[in-house]
Design a protein around this nucleic acid. Structure first.
Lengths: 331, 331
DNA sequence: ATGAAAGCGCTAACAT
DNA sequence: ATGTTAGCGCTTTCAT
């Protein structure tokens, strides 16, 4: 930079003004400086700028994984929004490892990012206190269980998601519900579905709720096989995720039953496969992009006001997509 | 830092040594310094460190998208490997936008990262010259078309992937091949498949190659519907990606034909859906994690030696997974 | 084993 | 509109 200044016959300060597009430079000198920059192939050192300004134009995003359509879409949307505001994305995945999550937290908050977005809870819920007061704007998102009231959180109304699934099944006329869920992670979704039935005075007993150890088709298949043997023939199955639902459909078919004629299946998420399943899966779509937008908005506002974002709870309402895996019960 | 030093009765230098775990500090003073750090809640400013050392412990990764199992797995693997070496990941997606790709390139190379990994080619192939000499270690990966010989590139042997698919079909006894491919992007895969047939003196004529405008099930479905009408009944279809293959299976079924009895279908990629398809899809698995490892290894070596990585071409050999969508032709 | 000084490349505040 | 003077918080010599 000093070289550029000397070559253009000005001071570093003027070069700085030119580089940052400040309008205090006379067209004449601006041209000279730009020429010098081009001739010398000068590129500003962003690290030095960061040290001087105290801002890195970078936002950290801690996320459980990106190998899942839900999170990858959220991350991609966040990245796009950030880039529109000239911010970079520092991505850190936790992969179900609480230790790793905490390491990331520590390293990202050492002034290397201007703000922090944290998605998913399971690995970090006990780490929330760590977030509380290192003076960095922090926003939580996709926080399904126990959103803390000490921080801003933007998340999906997961209870409502379960409720919408349950109500849809109720409206079709189903009076009994079998639940296959990744518990305890998705307990909120289950209580939503329960509420839909309870509204009509119908109970979903504990023995018709079957845990799927993981939210995968395999796991859903196993759990559904168990459920089908145990409960006779359920007419309606609520799966806490689409991945589980796909496994459920398998299991139903393996039992010689048809979807949706014999058994209706409803999931949550709206992963890409859902619409290509056989039959296309009725599901409650999680509003990922909208959530990403709200969260990023809060974060950017926090940065602009250069103080922690005040606590708040934003619940984004999901939407049910009725496809072909659900129908009225027979008889 | 000065505060910590004063409180511990030492100089900044000693504090620095303690923080970085250098072994030149006497246990006594180390304890005093650590106490001071704890009491003051001191956290080192990484930006300042970066300015002083000229290193940011951050690697930039430019990738077309992460909303695709292939890329998301590559990114996640890279992130994991980087974190093992205490490096951070700055993620930038191009989303099929060459302009955006070039912007990322420019901003990431302004000393804010220690090295750059670039995946995918379609948006950036004409931007490669930009990468050539800003003195940053750069590695290209997942570079399917025309890998430049001026840079190190770690990629899949896509020709071999096509060849494996073709040879598998040949070994089953198929003598004619219908190809549904996202062209021209996947032309290398197609020529691999062609080679397999050519080895046995069999030709894959141009009129049995059908372009799918995008690598999606919908696009594959459309193209396959066309192909099925045009070619009578092909016995074997090679799809250039699994997503396309899933659409092909749909189309075959829509035509009242069975997979694999009437028509064998083989894809490339091994996306998660492939094994859950009906029937489970025979496919050539792209070695994402291995590719990520090689690429990250080169990059880290480049950083360690603090000079550009010399040009090289590393081709990772894919592997075919024979499942149930392929069988010998009838008669 | 510890201290003192210089400087990484930039921006900020003031002066001209 | 441009120049001058201080830092930003750390690491790196080089002394001691």
């Amino acid at each position: 930079m000093a070289d550029v200044a000397k070559r253009a016959g000005v001071t570093k300060q003027t070069v700085s003004n030119v580089v940052r597009g400040r309008s205090v430079v006379s067209p004449d000198t601006r041209a000279r400086v730009e020429a010098a920059i081009a001739e010398l192939g000068y590129t500003p050192n962003l690290v030095a700028r960061s040290l001087a300004t105290g801002t890195t134009m970078t936002v950290g995003f801690i996320v459980p994984t990106i190998v899942h359509p839900f999170y990858s879409e959220v991350v991609e949307e966040v990245e796009t929004l950030l880039e529109e505001h000239s911010y970079h994305l520092l991505l850190a995945t936790t992969r179900g490892d609480g230790e790793r999550a905490r390491r990331h937290l520590a390293s990202l908050s050492s002034r290397s990012v201007d703000a922090l977005l944290v998605a998913g809870d399971f690995d970090l819920s006990d780490g929330v206190p760590l977030l509380d007061d290192h003076g960095l704007p922090v926003v939580l998102c996709a926080w399904e269980i126990d959103p803390p009231d000490t921080l801003p959180v933007v998340t999906v109304d997961y209870e409502q998601a379960g409720y919408l699934a349950g109500r849809h099944l109720r409206e079709l006329g189903h009076r009994r519900l079998t639940v296959i869920a990744d518990l305890p992670a998705h307990r909120i979704r289950v209580s939503g579905a329960r509420r839909a039935f309870a509204e009509d005075g119908l109970d979903v007993p504990a023995d018709s709720v079957f845990p799927a150890p993981r939210a995968t088709p395999e796991s859903g298949y196993e759990a559904a096989m168990l459920a089908l043997s145990a409960t006779g023939h359920p007419t309606a199955v609520f799966a806490s995720t689409d991945a589980i639902a796909l496994g459920v459909i398998e299991a139903v078919r393996r039992h010689g039953l048809r979807v949706p004629e014999d058994v209706s299946v409803v999931g949550i998420d709206d992963i890409p496969q859902a619409s290509h399943a056989h039959p296309p899966l009725t599901t409650v779509a999680l509003p990922k992009r909208q959530m990403a937008q709200e969260a990023t908005g809060l974060l950017l506002r926090g940065i602009a006001e250069s103080r922690p974002v005040p606590p708040s709870l934003t619940l984004i309402t999901p939407e049910i997509l009725v496809r072909e895996s659900s129908a009225p019960p027979i008889g």
